[in-house]
Design a protein around this nucleic acid. Structure first.
Lengths: 195, 195
DNA sequence: ACCTGAACACCGTTCAAGT
DNA sequence: ACCTGAACACCGTTCAAGT
């Protein structure tokens, strides 16, 4: 239903009708709309395989894990607005985090630095997915950028041409690679503070 | 109104009443609710100073720029759900991007790599702000993590203790520092692809 | 011509009436 | 006891009636 009618199509009434029951019958299974949304989010995120990837270095394995979430959400883009509100209590993301934390433990020995690295990865993942699905690429945003006053936005104007050469996959992977490079960089807190 | 009643409090009727006019009078100034939300988002993001910071290295100046957005949004957390839907056509973010792109041009010469770096920064910024305001820190998420089965989530359990030692500021800055370290890392595309 | 109240088609949820 | 329709209190927006 979400895929067909978008986030606004997921109403208690519509879901009940789809299930061939009265609207109020839904409240037998669900406390309120919030909980129903959570179940939908979990249904989508449940497609993410939490098992650690087999081969490759830690950076490649983290990339595989991150890409799995991107693919799962990409299969149902309409869920993106819902994930934002319901991500925190998702068991699927928790299992995903557990695996990624395990991989990170191989190279980031200090727990506090590992927390920062894990949250950094999650932040990038959340933001990049949203920019991909709700960003300027889809919608009238690109036109707005193209019509910019070149005098006021010289750098953005220059980047506009280059941006068309960078595909969505390349952009996502490239940004992730920058973050991973930073994680593999300096082991001491000095580098972190300096940078 | 957003600060007082949350995102749900921003209704056409409530806004009109606050302004002392009939509900329909709003449509004299605004096409629909979407446009009104956009104006609110722009009002909050308009507080971001787009002028390039004066001193310091490029990493410190980018950090200042990123922190400015975080502070502006942090002053009105209820706007976070709205920014997600309206960020793309925001002139304020465009001006911000122009300045950051200019700073990045100092060290990232290749335009395509600069696009990736800028989008990476924006992705991290968007995700980190959301995790900060809608994440496990606020709400019952932390309790859920604390009550985890230690056998199934050994790494997360271990990180739970360390996470309490890492403040929100430190976490945000730390993750950003990782990304900046990656940007300043390898100039060639080989590193990007390898990582 | 400009402005805006009543009305319409929704929504989530309460509550009492059905079985 | 279990289930669910009617009703309530909202919402954004249309449309025609006011000035």
């Amino acid at each position: 239903m979400l895929d067909r009618d978008g986030p606004a199509g997921l109403t208690m009434r519509a879901v009940a009708q789809q299930l061939g029951m009265g609207t109020m019958s839904l409240y037998r299974y669900v406390a309120d709309r919030e909980e129903l949304e959570g179940l939908v989010v979990e249904l989508v995120l449940g497609a993410v395989d939490p098992a650690p990837p087999e081969g490759g270095g830690w950076q490649e394995r983290v990339t595989v894990m991150v890409e799995r979430v991107r693919v799962a959400v990409g299969a149902h883009p309409a869920v993106v607005p819902l994930t934002m509100t319901h991500r925190h209590r998702s068991p699927a993301i928790l299992r995903w985090s557990e695996t990624v934390a395990g991989i990170l433990a191989e190279t980031v020995t200090d727990p506090e630095r590992r927390v920062v690295a894990l949250r950094g990865l999650l932040s990038y993942l959340v933001g990049a997915i949203q920019l991909e699905h709700l960003g300027p690429l889809s919608g009238p945003g690109t036109a707005a950028i193209a019509g910019l006053d070149p005098a006021a936005f010289p750098h953005m104007r220059q980047l506009g041409g280059a941006a068309r050469q960078v595909g969505a996959d390349e952009e996502f992977r490239g940004g992730l690679a920058l973050l991973l490079a930073g994680i593999s960089g300096g082991p001491g807190p000095a580098r972190t503070r300096k940078a």
